[in-house]
Write a protein that binds this DNA or RNA. Structure first.
Length: 591
DNA sequence: GCCGTTTTCGGCCCGACTGTTTTCAGTCG
């Protein structure tokens, strides 16, 4: 069992213990141990022979070591099994529902012996949940809303997870003999925030007929629970707690047509096929063909293009459309008239201005974050630790914020004395919390001393859209706020983003010269395509940040770039493609 | 259950917010 699976088992145990009303600190120790196991670069299985090495991990003592050893030996944990027998597996699913916590789930079980999403929904609809202590009609409604939004995302996977799976599989297929290209198509290639399944395409001169070894290598991938289809051209599998993965084997000669076809979207392909028909051609996954007069229906005509996507689009009088734009949202018209935007690229990003350090809930120091940014070719960063409202993150009050500001300045001047660091900038910043009434949780005089203030909402994303809008509108008016942080909260594959009047907030940002953050961390699906287009329309600038809590999180910038491209953004729309001096001018708090 | 001692138990990220209260429990970050 790998580290991720062990961590998952420990977390589920913690969840069940919480429902059982166990000591919160004991529960927490299971979660902390899960973090340690998952964060450990070496597999637990390889360390089993030297238990003292496992004991050196933070948060793992003798008791937890015994648990880990038991999991490695038996593939399960006795305590976990026991709790599952006492309660029900459905409870773990119920925890995913916004507004339902362990206490309520335990209460529902106690009173109704119910532990599944469907049954809880039924009880809520019948108005029976309000009989429970401290529950009323509003709480019932909230749970029903939570169930609805849970259903809307269940069965989908974060693109970061999908990407990791796809890359792991592709890495095993690429070196195989006879494989000239192996890549992911589908919504993953289009850069969607979530994907339902993974489409992989492998092509080579002798494929598909000579691809038995490729199919066999694919079927050896660990964690396959079911083979759905297994033919010479197509193999479909389902992964344990993971998506379905489709592999297609293609001849090199039609690889472009297949890539185009399987990249989609469906809407884009329909529009493209209509365009082909209007030009006397037909398009399918094998190529673009000319329709011949008098030919029988279905009889293939002369092949026009199939080898590359560029050739196919060109044959339809279109410039090649980037995958992120293929949603039938005007991209065909733009490609036909040469008006496709020059979409932003990762190499144009010059700095990341949202990150945390050990001063609050980050894992690295100011200097370590700076070094990681420089390694990635950045010219500047901003240190933006949390403010006091985020108490669980050890957020800064005014006094600590000012002391931290001095440390940031000192770190910058120290680093700049080194060679090759002369021009590196470390902006002093903060991620300040927007309270329910729209006020910020730190004094303006302190905020005015910082280079960059990111104003974010951190609580209550089940709030009514109306009150959330009011909250954001109020914050945008604050003279120190020049950057609105992730206003749509986290999705984590089970939570709806914040609901608010996007257009009203975008317009207010335009009025007050406030930029909006596109948070690139994979579980934050902030500014969706249409939000970004509203920003472009109203001239609201975007900043793509990773919200890094660890140096490696800086690499998440690619997810933000993909989302930005889906929103038709160019370098001109994104402020952190500019020099440090320009960025500073654009974001310095107004006094 | 872990940790760090003040060596054998007490502390462990805690405040904002809501809905239900008649003073607070539950959820969330």
């Amino acid at each position: 069992m790998d580290n991720r699976a062990i961590a998952h088992l420990l977390r589920e145990t913690a969840d069940l213990m919480e429902i059982a009303g166990e000591d919160v600190f004991r529960t927490r120790s299971y979660r902390k141990a899960a973090d340690a196991v998952e964060g450990c670069p070496a597999p637990m299985a390889s360390m089993a022979a030297e238990p003292q090495r496992i004991l050196q991990l933070p948060g793992i003592g003798k008791g937890m070591l015994a648990n880990i050893q038991e999991i490695l030996r038996d593939g399960q944990l006795h305590l976990h099994q026991e709790l599952l027998r006492k309660y029900r597996p459905g409870m773990l699913e119920l925890l995913n529902i916004q507004g339902l916590g362990p206490k309520t789930i335990a209460l529902i079980w106690e009173k109704f012996q119910v532990a599944s999403v469907d049954e809880v929904e039924q009880l809520a609809k019948e108005g029976k949940l309000r009989d429970l202590p401290r529950m009323g009609a509003k709480a019932e409604e909230k749970i029903l809303r939570g169930i609805q939004s849970y259903r809307s995302v269940s069965g989908r996977f974060l693109r970061s997870e999908a990407e990791a799976i796809a890359e792991a599989i592709l890495a095993t297929l690429r070196p195989l003999p006879g494989v000239s290209s192996a890549l992911a198509a589908g919504s993953l290639r289009r850069g969607k925030e979530t994907v339902g399944d993974i489409d992989l395409l492998v092509s080579g001169p002798e494929l598909p007929s000579g691809g038995q070894h490729v199919v066999e290598a694919f079927l050896r991938f660990p964690a396959i629970v079911e083979t759905l289809v297994s033919g010479p051209n197509k193999v479909s599998i389902r992964l344990h707690r993971g998506p379905q993965v489709d592999l297609r084997l293609l001849p090199e000669s039609s690889a472009g047509a297949a890539l185009q076809y399987f990249t989609g979207s469906k809407e884009h392909n329909v529009a493209l096929r209509q365009r082909a028909l209007r030009r006397g051609m037909t398009l399918n996954e094998y190529g673009l063909f000319r329709l011949r007069d008098g030919a029988a229906a279905g009889e293939p005509g002369e092949l026009v293009a199939a080898r590359t996507e560029e050739e196919i689009y060109a044959a339809l009088d279109l410039t090649c459309i980037p995958p992120e734009l293929r949603e039938d949202c005007g991209e065909l018209e733009a490609a036909a008239t040469g008006q496709l935007p020059d979409l932003i690229r990762a190499d144009q990003i010059r700095g990341d201005i949202h990150m945390h350090t050990v001063e609050t809930d980050g894992r690295a120091t100011i200097e370590e974050m700076a070094a990681a940014a420089r390694e990635r070719g950045y010219e500047y960063i901003a240190i933006t630790d949390h403010s006091q409202a985020l108490a669980m993150a050890n957020g800064l009050n005014e006094e600590r914020a000012l002391a931290h500001l001095q440390r940031i300045r000192a770190a910058e001047s120290r680093l700049r004395q080194q060679s090759n660091w002369e021009n590196f900038r470390i902006f002093s910043g903060i991620e300040v919390d927007i309270l329910a009434d729209g006020h910020l949780d730190l004094d303006s005089e302190v905020l005015a001393q910082l280079d960059i203030v990111i104003a974010s909402v951190h609580s209550r994303f089940d709030q009514e859209a109306e009150s959330m809008t009011a909250r954001l509108l109020r914050a945008v008016e604050h003279p120190c706020v020049r950057l609105l942080g992730h206003p749509t909260g986290r999705l984590l594959l089970r939570r709806e983003p914040y609901a608010f009047d996007v257009e009203a907030v975008v317009k207010a940002c335009a009025r007050h010269g406030v930029a909006m953050e596109l948070n690139a961390s994979p579980e934050r699906l902030d500014l969706k395509d249409q939000h970004l287009r509203l920003c472009r329309q109203h001239g609201v600038k975007i900043i793509i940040n990773t919200d890094a809590h660890h140096p490696r999180h800086l690499d998440n910038i690619r997810f933000g770039i993909a989302t930005a491209r889906r929103g038709w953004l160019t370098a001109g729309d994104v402020l952190n493609t500019r020099s440090a001096a320009d960025l500073e001018r654009a974001l310095r708090p107004r006094s």
